[in-house]
Structure formats: C-alpha cells, structure tokens
C-alpha cells in the first residue's frame, strides 16, 4: 500500500512531558484518515510536528516517502495544505485577498483557478466583505481554500468542525467528501465529533497518551461493529457446522466464541445445537458504534 504519511517511533517532549511517545502511523493514499483521541492525547502536537511547526525530539516521519531528516521535506510540504487548530486567515482582508496572498506564498505565477477555489468552498459571493465579518463556517471554508492553493494532494485538518452549527458541519463534510472524491485528495482529520468522523473517514487512527494504539480501516471497523450475537459454546466445530448448513452468517472468534451476524431465534438455536452435543454456555447481543469502539479501546473514558 502506498502511504502519503508515515511516522516511525515519533517522539515529542516538552521538558519532562512526552506529548508523542513512539508514535507509529500510516496514512494510505486517497484515504480520509480520522485521528481520534481525547484532549491532550497528542493530536494537535502530531499535526504541528508533521506541518514543520515543531521538530520531533526523536523518531522520524515521511511525507510522500521523503523523511523529515531530508532537506527535501520542504518540497514535500509544498504538496500539502493544513489548518492547525484555527484557520490561518487575515481577518482584515477579503477572501479574495487572502487567497491572492497565499498564491504568492506558494509561488504561483498567476491567479488561475482562484475563482474555482472560491466556488469549491462556496465563497464566490463574499465580494469586499472582510474575513472578520465571516461566520465561523465561512472562515473554516476560507481556511480550507487557502490550504488548497497550489493543488495539494494531502490536506491536514485539525478539528475542522469545532464550533460550527449543524449547517456548517454539513457543508464542511460535503466539501471534504467532494475533494476526496473529485480531486483525490488524501485527508488527515482530527476531530472530537466521532459521529461526524464516522460519516466520512475511510481509515481510523486512535491516539492515546501520545501513541497510536490502533489503526483500523472503515471496513474492518464496520465488521467488528456489526450487530451480532456473540455466543460461547463447548463445541465450536459442531456449532460452525450447523450455522454453515443453515446459511447463517457467522465468524469464529476463538475456540469457544462464535459471532452470529444474522437474526436467529436463540431458543431454537440452543435446542438444535444441544441435539449435536453442543451446549451454549453464554450469549451476548452486541452492536458497536465508533464511539463504543473507541471507549472499549481506550478503556472506558469517553472524554474524546
């Protein structure tokens, strides 16, 4: 798999506090990578390090395969855009002026596609209105437009929907999906809003105490989150055979545990299995959301 961003044992220390601790992360090309973690888990520190605002204490990261120890990392950064915490915009300037300045920073020879950029983020009609008079959602979209100058193929958004109203949240969500689908832009998005993230992310990274404790794809997560009945039996072979013969979807988890994904009548199942000398020792109905998955992973603390 081709990765846009990889980190290897990344560490960032502030005096005696380890904000990042041997962090390993892999962002596949074309994905929307949701970075999930509670306050102080290290999300923003990680983003600051990747963006070059801060240097790692130890470990390395590579963007498009170029290591941060290589001087060409600045060239790799030219292919990415980012919003760290708040959109970096000049409040006294118009949307157009903000974008024009970024065009010059990036070094584009003309203002081609500027109108298109404003159109993409829905800011074509702002005219001479200064950014300070924009709504939070508009500021966020302008920040994304600035990050998009130079046609990057990797965008980092730190808490992009923080403080937005429901309409603003939908706008940003649609925009991210559109950019990912149409322009094939890879996203790294950190967010507290797990429900929102679950609507767009294709990959998840769970961060806690400066470490990525789990990376999982959307498919894997859905599989593990499907509504299911987890049963504990004494004869896993017979149980699997019965489910197979009756076209019931299942997955063997261990020597004793089997997950059943189809709707079954537990009483009937218990009777049928007992005929095959297979006793159900316990069962549990399960359905996990991203939030449940996260809480189970982190260990019960839901302060995301």
């Amino acid at each position: 798999m081709e990765y846009i961003l990889e980190t290897q044992n990344l560490e960032k220390k502030y005096k005696n506090f380890k904000a990042l601790d041997n962090l390993n992360m892999h962002i596949p090309k074309g994905s929307i990578y949701g970075l999930i973690g509670k306050n102080g888990a290290g999300k923003t520190t990680l983003i600051r390090v990747i963006c070059g605002l801060q240097k790692p204490t130890n470990g390395t990261y590579s963007i498009y395969g170029i290591s941060n120890t290589n001087k060409k990392i600045t060239d790799a950064r030219k292919r990415m855009g980012a919003i760290v915490e708040l959109p970096a915009i000049r409040l006294e300037a118009t949307a157009m002026d903000n974008l024009k300045e970024q065009y010059k920073i990036v070094g584009l020879p003309n203002y081609d596609n500027l109108e298109e950029l404003l159109k993409i983020v829905g800011l074509t009609n702002t005219g001479k209105k200064k950014a300070k008079n924009f709504s939070l959602g508009m500021k966020q979209r302008l920040g994304i437009a600035i990050a998009l100058v130079g046609n990057p193929d990797f965008l980092i958004l730190d808490e992009p929907i923080n403080g937005l109203d429901p309409e603003g949240i939908i706008e940003i969500r649609e925009l991210i999906l559109k950019l990912n689908k149409e322009k094939k832009i890879t996203f790294l998005i950190s967010s507290h809003y797990l429900d929102e993230l679950s609507k767009i992310a294709t990959e998840y990274g769970f961060i806690d105490k400066g470490k990525i404790i789990k990376e999982i794809s959307k498919q894997e997560l859905e599989k593990s989150s499907r509504k299911r009945i987890e049963i504990k039996v004494n004869n896993i072979k017979e149980c699997a055979l019965y489910l197979e013969q009756n076209n019931i979807s299942y997955e063997v988890i261990s020597d004793e545990i089997i997950n059943i994904y189809d709707l079954v009548n537990i009483s009937e199942l218990a009777i049928e299995l007992s005929k095959r000398n297979c006793i159900i020792n316990g069962f549990n109905e399960k359905e996990e959301s991203l939030e449940n998955y996260y809480i189970n992973l982190i260990g019960g603390n839901s302060n995301v």
Binding site: G52, R77, K78, I89, L91, I105, V106, I146
Partner: peptide, 18 residues
C-alpha cells in the same frame, strides 16, 4: 506580529518555506 495573531506564519511553513 500579525503573522502570529492571524496564524498566517503557519501557512508559510506548511507551504514549504524555511
């Protein structure tokens, strides 16, 4: 100072300027 208060100094670093 406005580069810090507006945060636009970040845009320069992210755009690959040393």
């Amino acid at each position: 100072g406005a580069e810090y208060s507006d945060g636009t100094i970040r845009n320069k670093i992210v755009a690959g300027h040393s």
